[in-house]
């Protein structure tokens, strides 16, 4: 039985902001199905009594003194931007309405 359908892959692609082609949807549906079926084995041993590990180094709240220090200049921060206007990142249209 298939664990993931083509429609689910299309949904995932939308969530992940990937404008996939029809061919890609077919390919990934088949491949993700194989991968997910295979990795689902983890549930065999993941009992209620086993605590999860998110990180191998248990660390909490690493602080440094709150002192000003040099950072990037605006020019440096903007140097890699695809579009810049008036010393700011210029973004594509973000509002739904017609301008």
């Amino acid at each position: 039985m298939s664990t993931i359908t083509r429609d689910e892959v299309a949904h995932l692609a939308r969530l992940a902001r990937l404008q996939l082609t029809d061919d890609e949807l077919d390919t990934y549906a088949a491949q993700l199905d194989v991968i997910i079926s295979s990795v689902a084995r983890v549930s065999e041993v993941a009992g209620e009594d086993v605590p999860p590990t998110s990180h191998s180094v248990p660390l909490t709240n690493v602080f440094r003194p709150d002192e000003p220090r040099p950072g990037l200049t605006a020019e440096e921060a903007l140097a890699g931007a695809p579009a810049v206007e008036s010393q700011r990142f210029r973004v594509p249209r973000i509002l739904g309405e017609e301008v």
């Binding site: 689902a40 983890v42 041993v45 993941a46 086993v50 999860p52 590990t53």
Partner: peptide, 15 residues
Amino acid sequence: DAYYGSAQKVRTLIT
């Protein structure tokens, strides 16, 4: 829970 959660538990078992 079934996927990421279980995988994190396996991480404990491997450690």
